[in-house]
Computed example of a mutant assay.
Amino acid sequence: MRADAQKNRDTLLASARALFFEQEQEASLRDVARRAGVGMGTLYRHFPTREALLETLLRAEFDALALSAETLNDAARPDLGLVQWLEEIIDFTYRHRGIIAPMMGAIEDEYSALHESCVALRAAGARLLSRAQQAGSARADMTGEELFDLIAALAWLREQPAHAPRAERVFQIVTDVILTGRE
Rank of each mutant, 00 (worst) to 15 (best):
A3E: 14
D4T: 11
D4V: 08
A5N: 06
Q6F: 09
N8E: 10
N8L: 00
R9T: 01
L13W: 10
S15M: 06
A16N: 06
L19D: 02
F20Q: 04
F20M: 12
F21Q: 15
E22I: 03
Q23W: 08
Q23P: 00
Q23H: 13
Q23S: 05
Q23G: 00
E24V: 00
A27E: 05
R30S: 04
R30P: 00
R30F: 08
D31G: 04
V32R: 11
V32N: 08
R34C: 00
R34F: 12
R35A: 07
A36M: 09
A36I: 06
V38R: 06
M40E: 03
T42W: 02
L43V: 01
L43D: 04
L43E: 06
L43K: 09
Y44M: 03
R45F: 03
F47R: 05
T49H: 01
T49N: 00
R50C: 00
E51P: 06
A52H: 04
A52G: 01
L53E: 03
T56L: 01
L57Y: 02
A60M: 01
E61A: 05
L65I: 01
S68F: 08
S68Q: 15
E70P: 08
E70Y: 14
T71F: 13
T71H: 15
L72W: 13
A76K: 15
R77V: 08
D79N: 13
G81M: 11
G81K: 11
V83I: 06
Q84L: 12
W85M: 07
D91P: 05
F92H: 14
R95T: 09
G98R: 08
I99L: 14
I100Q: 14
A101W: 11
A101F: 10
M103D: 09
M104R: 14
G105F: 10
G105D: 14
G105S: 13
A106L: 15
I107F: 12
I107E: 11
E108G: 09
D109I: 02
E110S: 13
Y111P: 01
S112H: 11
S112Q: 09
H115T: 03
H115Y: 13
S117R: 15
L121G: 07
L121P: 13
R122E: 10
R122P: 03
A123I: 02
A123T: 11
A124T: 02
R127H: 12
L128S: 06
L129K: 03
R131H: 09
A132I: 01
A132G: 03
Q133G: 05
Q133E: 09
Q134H: 15
G136H: 14
A140E: 11
D141H: 15
D141V: 10
E145N: 12
L147N: 10
A153Q: 13
W156C: 02
L157T: 00
L157F: 05
R158N: 07
E159S: 06
Q160I: 12
A162P: 04
A162T: 11
A164Q: 14
A164E: 13
A164V: 01
R166Y: 15
V170H: 12
V170D: 05
Q172A: 05
Q172S: 03
I173M: 07
I173P: 02
V174C: 06
T175L: 03
T175S: 06
D176G: 11
D176W: 02
D176K: 07
L179W: 01
E183L: 02
